[in-house]
Computed example of a mutant assay.
Amino acid sequence: MNTNMLPENLQAEALIEEVNQGLFYPVFQPITNGNGTVGAEVLLRWKRGHDVEASIRCLLDSDKIAWFTQKFLLRVSEELLSREKMIDFLTINISPGHVLSFTFLRDIYPIWQACNKLDVTLWIELTENEQYPVGINEKRMMSQFGVCRGLGIKIAIDDYGSGYNTGEALIRVVKPNIVKIDRSLMRNRSDNSTFWERLRFLARKYQIELLSEGIESHEDLRFAKSQGIAYFQGYHLGKPGSLNQLSKQDIAYYSSP
């Protein structure tokens, strides 16, 4: 089914039917500390192979997006609970707008509960494609973050340096535990020396841990380490896969000469 050929309202209905049929599934990309896999990011895949992010944009209704997220996170929770602890933390992507939803805490509860049972820390990554709320909605967002922190959940800014996830003002407002650096800044690091210097300053000032995406070579990893980055993610360290593949990739990579 090519949902992009349908009118927007029918696209949404078709997509919801695909979800109900179980055609969406999670994969896990390893995150390392330079010595071994310590965490994983949950990514969404579609058995039909279509562009997931482009397709779910037809779910313009916030309730539908929340429903979609809840269904997906329930699937992730079931997978986690089907095996023993393998990682120290798990990170999921949430839009700033979803944080404002009255169902937000209910939506993330199953994945938090699964992580809590396994003694795995849950991270929430705030995605870069949506403007952050202001005024009273900003206060509501921060209140939601307060509840999350009370549950032991860490807040991360995803793809920092791209989209709406830029600047010190955002860090000052959100007060993230972790900032994930957009892969484009790793690729073009020779043109962004000022960015890296500024980032190191902000990390010290706000006591933030840094994670670099886009580690595609040993040289990328060496550069990231030289910047004082704590965590690393990229195809050089492991591709997205099942939880079983996550463990095997870790063993294969770190036992190689």
Rank of each mutant, 00 (worst) to 15 (best):
S55W: 06
L74G: 04
N129L: 11
I16E: 13
L90E: 00
H98T: 07
I87A: 01
G22L: 12
F104K: 07
I124K: 09
V19M: 15
H50V: 14
I16N: 06
D119E: 11
R45Y: 10
P30Y: 05
R83C: 07
L105C: 08
F24L: 12
Q144W: 04
Y132H: 11
N33R: 11
G97I: 06
L43K: 08
S77P: 04
T69Y: 10
W67Y: 13
V27H: 10
I31V: 10
I87F: 03
M142F: 14
P133V: 07
Y109P: 01
L43S: 05
V19F: 10
W123L: 11
E138L: 15
G36L: 06
E128G: 11
I124T: 04
R57V: 08
Q131Y: 08
R48N: 13
Q29I: 11
Q21N: 15
G22N: 12
S82I: 01
K85T: 03
N33Y: 08
E18V: 04
A40K: 04
E53N: 11
I124R: 09
G146E: 06
L126Y: 02
N35E: 14
Q131L: 14
T121M: 10
C58E: 05
R140P: 04
P26R: 01
N20G: 07
F68P: 01
F104Q: 02
N116V: 00
G22Q: 03
V19W: 09
S77D: 01
R106F: 06
I31G: 08
L43I: 01
G34A: 11
G97E: 13
R106A: 11
Y109D: 09
D119W: 02
N20D: 12
Q21W: 06
K47R: 15
E17R: 14
L105I: 08
M86K: 14
T121Y: 03
M86W: 03
F102Y: 12
N33Q: 09
L44G: 00
L81T: 03
I16M: 12
F104L: 05
P96R: 12
I56K: 05
D107K: 11
N129G: 04
V76C: 05
S55E: 04
F28G: 02
S101V: 05
R106W: 07
L81F: 03
L43D: 07
L23G: 01
N116L: 02
V38D: 06
D63G: 04
C115H: 02
L73D: 00
L90R: 00
R83F: 03
D61M: 06
A114V: 10
R48A: 14
I92N: 09
L44C: 14
I16G: 02
I124E: 05
T37K: 05
G49W: 06
I31Y: 07
L60H: 15
V19L: 09
V99T: 06
I108Q: 07
